[in-house]
């Protein structure tokens, strides 16, 4: 797909932007090699530090603009955790805030031209998705013991239906981390690949204005998607956390 040459001289390399390269030299990529992944992950750490540590350093009672950004982000996620996961979910707020801030910063950094989008990699999102899945499942068993399994046994349903529903619930429970992680990676990857495809069309003079307009439009959509996917990832984490905290619905 990536190195197929289309007819008419068009060259599509939509997937090349996702290649992992060592930062220094051209060696093989071992697990410890500093790569472009490392670089952009470090940049997202810096972005998080900038937003949540440097901007609100004034600690003013009447916030400055930068301080408001940090406080809005804090209030937004805090309220989400409180509303969706419940009052007792608040003590897991730092973990959820970590996920949200990382995903938001990585998504927006990935939109910079020439950037490497760390969240477009299934390996990256799968670590977070499965991390949330295992954390929530273990938390459920630790808090409720074996009665956590009642999550799958819907007592509101008629008795003959319950085994079928339990099967469906169990399947959907184990599918959660897959959809949770692939949703984010897929959205990011698809958006960036589409931009690259339109960019390849810009080489043809006749349709290049259309192509550039389309790139602009898709880019605007991607800005929206970058935030919405971070929001959706976070709110789903809160929903899964609520299931672990209150499995009896």
């Amino acid at each position: 797909m990536a190195d197929e040459k289309a007819e008419g001289g068009l060259v599509f390399h939509p997937m090349d932007q996702f290649i992992v390269k060592p930062l220094f030299g051209d060696g093989a990529v071992a697990w410890y090699t500093p790569t472009n992944v490392t670089f952009w992950l470090a940049l997202s750490v810096l972005a998080v530090v900038l937003i949540l540590v440097v901007l609100p350093r004034g600690r003013a009672v009447v916030p400055t603009r930068g301080q408001s950004i940090a406080e809005l982000a804090y209030g937004f996620i805090y309220k989400m955790v409180e509303d969706v996961a419940g009052k007792d979910g608040v003590k897991y707020f730092p973990y959820i805030m970590t996920l949200f801030m990382f995903i938001v910063c990585a998504n927006f950094l990935g939109l910079l031209p020439g950037a490497f989008t760390t969240t477009s990699h299934i390996a990256v999102t799968a670590v977070m998705g499965f991390g949330v899945f295992f954390a929530v499942t273990i938390l459920g068993f630790v808090l409720h013991g074996i009665s956590f399994l009642k999550l799958f046994w819907i007592s509101a349903a008629p008795l003959p239906l319950r085994p079928i529903l339990a099967l469906i619930e169990i399947i959907s429970y184990f599918v959660r981390p897959v959809s949770h992680s692939i949703r984010l990676a897929g959205n990011m990857m698809a958006g960036h690949a589409v931009i690259k495809v339109f960019a390849a069309f810009a080489a043809v003079t006749l349709i290049s204005p259309l192509s550039i307009g389309a790139i602009t439009a898709i880019y605007a959509l991607e800005v929206l998607v970058a935030f919405i996917q971070a929001y959706v990832f976070t709110i789903l984490t809160c929903v899964y956390l609520r299931d672990a905290l209150h499995p009896h619905h």
């Binding site: 949703r183 959706v232 709110i235 789903l236």
Partner: peptide, 12 residues
């Protein structure tokens, strides 16, 4: 928030 959760499930 409920709408976004619904979107997420439909999109899954």
């Amino acid at each position: 928030a409920t709408m976004f959760i619904g979107i997420a499930f439909a999109e899954a």
